[in-house]
């Protein structure tokens, strides 16, 4: 870690899940800046620094839910990966779906990894910790993001 705070964007419509993710981070004693947007349209505004997000930071990691109103996760994923400025940001699909077609579709759209949210809270905390640990501590990300 180079002391700079880690920016994580959580794209999730369910307040319960947002809270749960926050709680999990808290339980896992992970400190980083968690930004939350509630749908795909907002997510794209955030990433492109449009609307009310002119001053928002470029995220180091995106946690993406698939099923959302307005613009769903698949569209968001496809737009991110089609955007030269955004495509190098790792996107972790974090969803309740374990459907095969969702998994395939996500990897087709160049998701960096696909994780089904565990029902068990302990498991969920472990997963969130792992994501942080893997993507933000173990993996070397492209320098332009940092």
């Amino acid at each position: 870690m180079n002391g700079r705070s880690i920016e994580v964007l959580l794209i999730e419509d369910s307040p319960g899940d947002v809270r749960l993710t926050k709680e999990a981070l808290k339980e896992g004693k992970i400190l980083n800046n968690l930004h939350v947007v509630n749908d795909g349209v907002e997510a794209m505004s955030f990433l492109r620094k449009q609307g009310g997000y002119q001053s928002s930071p470029a995220p180091d990691l995106i946690l993406l839910d698939l099923n959302m109103p307005k613009k769903d996760g698949r569209e968001v994923l496809s737009e991110i990966k089609a955007d030269p400025k955004l495509k190098s940001i790792p996107v972790v699909v974090l969803t309740t779906s374990s459907a095969e077609e969702d998994i395939l579709k996500s990897y087709d759209l160049h998701a960096n990894c696909y994780i089904t949210k565990p029902v068990d809270l302990d498991q969920f905390i472990k997963v969130v910790k792992s994501i942080n640990n893997f993507w933000l501590n173990i993996v070397e990300l492209p320098p332009n993001i940092k």
């Binding site: 899940d17 339980e27 309740t96 779906s97 949210k117 068990d120 809270l121």
Partner: peptide, 20 residues
């Protein structure tokens, strides 16, 4: 069954959080 997972996970997770 798929969509039932979602609220169930919510119930389950928060009950577990409560227990924890």
């Amino acid at each position: 069954s798929h969509d039932l997972q979602e609220p169930l996970r919510m119930v389950s997770s928060y009950v577990q959080l409560l227990a924890r």
